[in-house]
Amino acid sequence: MKHFAILPALALIAACATPQEQCINTASNEVRNIRTGISTAQGNIARGYAIFKSRESYEVVDVCYDKDKKPYTCYNTEYRTIESPVSINVAEERRKLANLKKRLPAATRLMNKSVASCRVQFPE
């Protein structure tokens, strides 16, 4: 649930970013995604299983107020994140990790060139 609450805040921050910051953020996406994948794969290998996250809604009893400010019982929908273990093929996860680590240097070089280009294109 924490991740879902962060998304609107990130959208607001992105909307307030300067053109240079937006360009750099876009240029950094691939490296960020690869690093996230590496971290996830390492965690999965260390645990021996992956973690599947799902969002589940549930109803809670609450007190609401009508237009005359009279209280009445109502139901509100709230959400929680459920984490479940999922079996993985550890050998396949190791291959995926090796591939991600192999892709990282080239992606980092491309990111560095793109960030330099962003700084030239959008000086601050």
Rank of each mutant, 00 (worst) to 15 (best):
P105L: 07
D66E: 01
T108G: 08
R95K: 15
Y72K: 03
L97G: 10
D66T: 09
E83Y: 10
Y65P: 07
S114N: 15
T73F: 05
L104K: 06
K113H: 09
A106R: 11
L110V: 10
A107R: 12
L97N: 08
D66N: 14
Y79M: 07
V86F: 08
V90L: 04
K67S: 14
E92I: 12
N99M: 15
T73L: 14
K67W: 06
K96W: 02
T81A: 04
Y65C: 05
S84M: 12
D68C: 02
A107I: 11
K67C: 02
K113Y: 08
L110A: 15
N89E: 09
R80E: 03
R80H: 07
K67P: 00
C74N: 03
P105C: 09
Y72L: 09
K96F: 09
K96I: 05
E83R: 12
T81P: 00
Y72S: 02
L104T: 12
K96R: 15
E92A: 15
K102H: 08
T108N: 10
E93W: 00
P85V: 06
E78N: 14
E92K: 13
K102M: 05
A98R: 08
A91M: 06
L104N: 07
A98C: 01
Y79T: 05
D66H: 06
S114I: 01
T77N: 13
M111Y: 06
S84I: 04
Y65G: 03
T108D: 08
N76K: 15
V86Y: 06
I82R: 08
A91S: 05
N76G: 12
K102E: 03
N89G: 07
D66G: 03
R103K: 11
K113W: 06
Y72H: 09
R103N: 07
V90G: 05
T108P: 01
D66V: 03
N99Q: 13
K102R: 13
N76D: 10
K69H: 15
R94K: 15
Y75M: 12
Y75G: 08
I82H: 02
T77Y: 03
L100E: 05
D66K: 06
Y72R: 02
K113I: 11
N76W: 10
E83M: 10
S84D: 11
E83D: 13
N99G: 13
Y65E: 02
T73D: 01
T73S: 06
D68H: 12
R80A: 07
K101G: 03
A107G: 07
K67V: 11
Y79W: 13
R109S: 14
L100R: 05
P85Q: 14
R109N: 10
L110K: 15
I88E: 06
R109Q: 12
Y65K: 07
A107Y: 10
L104C: 06
C74G: 01
A98Q: 09
S114H: 12
I88G: 05
C74Y: 02
N89P: 04
T81E: 10
T81G: 00
S87P: 00
N99F: 11
N89K: 09
A106V: 15
